[in-house]
Design a protein around this nucleic acid. Structure first.
Lengths: 216, 216, 216, 216
DNA sequence: CATGAATGAGCGTTCATTCAT
DNA sequence: AATGAATGAACGCTCATTCAT
């Protein structure tokens, strides 16, 4: 019994240590993947960054690709937990909130996000399974949201699909310099202001004389 | 004389053939770079795609890297020739036109653009020399344009820098699905409509009741 | 403590094994370099000679060139340790001794010496850094020695520089057939006799009637 | 007939042109072989040095190796023509003369000689066929010469084989700096003086008191 | 005869992975 | 569990040689 107990706590402590090591490896790998791309990052690089032997990696992951997949999965899990609350969305302010939350999530592990986007750019499987699958949740919500607002005479009769994509674009575009490592992640307040500006421009445009140039 | 003439035309024909071959190589390489990334594309892949011997590549380019650089340069040259006309811009419609022209340019060689973006994502030098250097031309024009319109009471008092970035973002975002190979390039008319929609949404927003939610 | 001790001896044993492996590689490489030249020897050849995988070489040396340099350095180190005692030289017999010692050193690793000479023959850097730098020590000693002996009316008034070079030449020449692999290395006694003969011929000449033909 | 005549003279002129071109190729190749070794010299290098197309080489030689062999053969032929007169040798002065002649021959095409020695150093076939075969003529003559002089009480009772080798060594050694490209070829008079010094040192030694140290 | 273009064979080297300790 | 050592497979690239013109 005592043995079992010791063993159990030992196991747990060991498991925690293992989990921490896995995280260290993933963090270091994500950093390198983000900076140089998955293909150009060697297992030697990763091991050196964690300061362990190269072959030790294989005690924690079956291979290099699985490290990437673990990173992609972790980040996807994070995003999913945000998207789960999308269905509860109602109205403008809640969209600002979720944009802000998404930004926070994507930027909380910039390297993970950057690695995800970089790999999705050149790998169809990654794109479909990790990006598009998630983006569609938002897209569908947005399209339905826009359509209902148009019907309620709140929105001009824009094309919902295109508009949804443009909204996504502003969102991504606003983050691009941070994701690409050209700018430091913004503070919470700056980030919230950014989210609001994005939504507001989409909502009201920048012109004081709307419609004047329509079809012009 | 006749000999010289014959020799000259011979040279020209040969040079044309060489140029065509170089283009074939670049096209095939760009396609592979776009699909799998530069690092994961082997010279063997490229040679096989052009159906020539692997070593034959080296008669046309000094190395794999130079094939990429030739692709990046060619696409940059194309973009530069568009940006040269930016200074002549005046007003809304001309901005729609240049957006349309840029879209046409970027999409006329989707693989080139895709390879460029993919490499810029993980290579600071490429990002700075090939992307940022060009984007700044547009950014500066846009910021000045927005500022002057605000002063003329045409635009609401938005933050020019952020707004310029958001405009860029909508532009990039609108192209993303095509660039990433998820959608076929649009026809000229569709493309023009897309450009107009982008500019119009930025201009007027999507809400029928502007300002109602501002600061709310 | 015990752990540290175990670890220490483990390290030492491992290091010894690594050193032995490095030596094996260098020996095999020197043999091939001597027989076929550096440029014509492939890393595949070397690996096969040591019976290891080709890529295993790179765990012991950064590259092919460094294997050669290690060989040249080791042999140079050996020669330097002999030359260090040159300054103590005094008189004829000690010169015989150092000639003998040098011969012993050069012949103890014939392949190393042969590889060194072969590479020096076609590589200016190797010639200057590994051969001339060392030969000058002997040359300068010899010139001074000859000059002093002439002043002491022990030697005929020969030209010291040329004579020194000729002495070197006899030395090299006497070894040439062994270095080139046409003859087996001589036993210690034969070698000593050779050294003595060389010095003696230089000293006394082969003629019984010296001077008879001078200027004739 | 006229056609034949024209053809003949044409052939002759063409043949001369071909011979000249062959010589140009051999000279350029010998220069590169001497400087960098045969294995490290590329056909591209050779062609560039002669300023012709790389494939044009193959109109004059079946391959790279044959260029080397032509060089070795030409130099060997030159040496043979000197050695032919060795049998006529009689006495001291004639030996000085042949040493001088040999020196002149070897140095008249330094690159050829240097390429020959460099290749012989790492190629047994070349060593045997081009060097040893010729050296033996001299060796045998020298041994017989020394033996006869000893019998005639002209020479001390040295070991003929070793002495012959030492004489060879002084000869080679005296030329080494020139052959290796560290010194410019000497003028005719300097060269003759060198030859004489070599023979004289061998003959009389450098000591004023011969025999004093014998056996010491 | 001269050559630009093409190429198979092979080079030195890298790297993700395995294995013995 | 941790790792140094080993390695097959593959990489980017070179080069002597061939061939069509």
């Amino acid at each position: 019994m005592a043995e079992r107990l010791t063993s159990m706590t030992g196991e747990t402590r060991r498991e925690r240590r293992i989990q921490r090591q896995r995280q260290d490896i993933m963090d270091a790998a994500a950093n390198l993947f983000a900076a140089n791309g998955y293909a150009s990052t060697t297992t030697k690089d990763i091991a050196a960054a964690v300061d362990i032997g190269e072959s030790t990696l294989y005690g924690y992951f079956p291979g290099k690709r699985e490290i990437l997949l673990a990173i992609l999965n972790e980040q996807s899990r994070r995003i999913d937990s945000i998207l789960a609350s999308v269905s509860n969305l109602d109205g403008y302010q809640s969209y600002v909130d979720i944009v802000d939350l998404l930004m926070e999530t994507l930027l909380s592990k910039v390297d993970y996000t950057r690695a995800l986007i970089g790999e999705a750019w050149i790998n169809d499987r990654v794109l479909n399974e990790y990006v598009i699958a998630r983006a569609q949740v938002l897209t569908q919500f947005l399209e339905a949201f826009i359509t209902s607002r148009i019907e309620a005479d709140d929105f001009r009769p824009v094309e919902p699909r295109l508009t949804a994509r443009i909204i996504h674009a502003t969102f991504i575009g606003a983050l691009l310099p941070v994701l690409r490592g050209m700018q430091p992640p913004p503070e919470a307040m700056q980030r919230h202001a950014l989210a609001e500006s994005v939504v507001q421009i989409i909502s009201d445009g920048i012109s004081l004389h709307p419609g004047r140039r329509a079809r012009a």
